[in-house]
Amino acid sequence: MIGTLIEKEQVANLKIIPAEVDNSAKFMSILQSALRLGNEFKSKTALVFNTDEGPMRIETTVWSLTEKYIQIKHGILIPLRSLIAVEY
Rank of each mutant, 00 (worst) to 15 (best):
Ala25Trp: 01
Ile76Thr: 04
Gln10Asp: 08
Leu47Ala: 09
Glu9Met: 09
Ser29Tyr: 08
Ile17Cys: 13
Phe41Glu: 08
Leu80Cys: 09
Thr51Ser: 11
Ala34Pro: 13
Glu7Gln: 11
Met28Thr: 14
Phe41His: 14
Gly3Asn: 13
Ile58Val: 08
Val86Trp: 01
Val21Cys: 06
Leu83Met: 15
Lys44Cys: 05
Ser29Ile: 10
Pro18Gly: 09
Lys44Ile: 08
Tyr88Pro: 07
Glu53Tyr: 10
Ile78Val: 06
Lys26Ser: 12
Gly75Lys: 08
Glu7Phe: 03
Gly38Trp: 00
Ser33Val: 15
Glu67Gly: 14
Ser24Arg: 11
Val21Tyr: 04
Thr66Glu: 02
Gln10Gly: 03
Leu35Asp: 08
His74Lys: 10
Lys42Trp: 01
Phe49Met: 07
Lys26Ala: 13
Glu7Ile: 07
Gly54Pro: 10
Ala25Asn: 07
Ser43Ala: 14
Glu40Leu: 13
Asp22Leu: 07
Leu83Gly: 14
Ala19Pro: 11
Val48Trp: 04
Arg81Ser: 14
Asn50Gly: 06
Gly54Glu: 06
Ser82Gln: 05
Gln71Asn: 05
Arg36Pro: 02
Leu35Ala: 06
Thr4His: 08
Lys8Gly: 01
Ser29Met: 12
Gln71Tyr: 00
Val11Cys: 05
Pro79Met: 12
Glu9Ile: 13
Lys8Met: 03
Arg57Ala: 12
Ser29Lys: 12
Thr60Val: 10
Ala46Trp: 01
Glu59Gly: 04
Phe27Thr: 10
Leu77His: 01
Pro79Val: 14
Ala25Glu: 11
Ile2Cys: 07
Ala25Lys: 13
Val86Ala: 10
Leu83Gln: 10
Leu47Val: 15
Asn39Ser: 13
Arg36Ala: 11
Asn50Cys: 09
Tyr69Gly: 06
Leu37Arg: 04
Asn39Arg: 12
Pro18Lys: 10
Lys26Asn: 11
Pro18Glu: 13
Leu65Gly: 08
Ala46Val: 11
Ser29Pro: 15
Ile17Arg: 10
Leu65Phe: 00
Met56Trp: 01
Asn39Ile: 04
Met56Gly: 03
Gln10Val: 02
Ile30Trp: 04
Pro79Ala: 13
Ser24Gln: 08
Lys8Pro: 01
Glu7Lys: 15
Leu77Asp: 02
Tyr88Met: 13
Asp22Tyr: 04
Val62Gly: 02
Val11Pro: 02
Lys26Gly: 06
Arg36Val: 12
Leu37Ala: 09
Met56Arg: 12
Leu47Thr: 09
Met56Leu: 04
Glu87Ile: 04
Leu14Asp: 12
Gly54His: 06
Leu83Glu: 13
Asn39Phe: 01
Glu59Leu: 05
Met1Phe: 07
Asn13Lys: 11
Ile58Arg: 02
Ile30Thr: 14
Trp63Tyr: 06
Phe41Pro: 02
Thr60Glu: 05
Gly54Lys: 11
Ala25Met: 07
His74Leu: 05
Ala46Met: 11
Thr61Met: 07
Ile76Glu: 00
Lys15Gln: 15
Ile2Arg: 11
Ala25Arg: 07
Glu87Phe: 04
Leu77Asn: 05
Gly54Phe: 01
Asp22Glu: 09
Thr66Leu: 02
Ile16Arg: 03
Leu80Lys: 06
Ile6Ser: 05
Leu80Arg: 08
Glu40Ile: 07
Pro18Ser: 10
Val62Ser: 02
